[in-house]
Computed example of a mutant assay.
Amino acid sequence: MMNTASLLENITYQENDKPTVTVLLKTANTKEVRIVMKKGQCMKEHKAPYPIIIEMFDGEIDFGINGNKQILKKGDMIALEANVPHDLSCLQESIIRLSISVQDKVERVNQVIA
């Protein structure tokens, strides 16, 4: 069986201060999540219970790991092991692909939206 999705279809930049989180695909091992952020939106420091991979599809964010900041731009990817504290601040409109374990919950991602 094959599942398909688009990172670019049905994008909504919310007018409030909250990023938009959408599950695009679910496989036997992962959930592929799209996070759409407007400039100034943030996700407060949090940890994931399983390893994650973040891909910057478009835009630019200030990504903090244990308080150390680095800029992630279009095309950049970063992998984090479980339980690594991290936070995001959006510097320009961004589309982020987040790969999480199928055992992880998207509700957890929504809880860390500032």
Results as ranks from 00 to 15, higher is better:
19 P>K: 03
95 I>H: 05
13 Y>W: 10
80 L>M: 08
107 E>K: 11
53 I>A: 14
34 R>Y: 06
43 M>I: 12
90 C>K: 01
104 D>H: 12
69 K>N: 15
31 K>H: 04
12 T>I: 08
68 N>E: 14
28 A>Q: 13
99 S>Y: 09
106 V>H: 01
32 E>A: 14
52 I>W: 03
43 M>L: 12
27 T>I: 12
110 N>T: 13
57 F>A: 07
14 Q>A: 14
100 I>M: 05
111 Q>N: 09
63 F>W: 05
36 V>G: 04
28 A>P: 07
83 N>K: 15
30 T>G: 00
24 L>A: 05
15 E>L: 14
57 F>N: 04
51 P>T: 01
103 Q>A: 11
34 R>A: 06
36 V>P: 01
104 D>W: 03
21 V>F: 12
69 K>D: 13
50 Y>A: 08
10 N>H: 15
63 F>C: 05
52 I>D: 00
85 P>E: 07
64 G>W: 01
100 I>S: 00
92 Q>N: 11
5 A>P: 05
72 L>R: 04
41 Q>H: 01
62 D>C: 14
99 S>T: 13
48 A>I: 03
88 L>P: 00
65 I>N: 11
5 A>Q: 09
10 N>V: 15
108 R>M: 10
75 G>K: 02
9 E>G: 09
52 I>T: 04
80 L>V: 06
62 D>F: 08
79 A>T: 03
51 P>H: 01
39 K>R: 12
50 Y>P: 02
11 I>T: 04
35 I>W: 06
84 V>R: 02
26 K>A: 04
29 N>Q: 11
58 D>R: 15
37 M>K: 02
31 K>G: 02
33 V>N: 02
12 T>R: 00
109 V>I: 15
19 P>N: 04
106 V>C: 07
7 L>D: 10
19 P>Q: 01
99 S>W: 10
20 T>A: 11
47 K>F: 11
42 C>K: 15
1 M>V: 10
85 P>N: 09
114 A>M: 13
3 N>L: 14
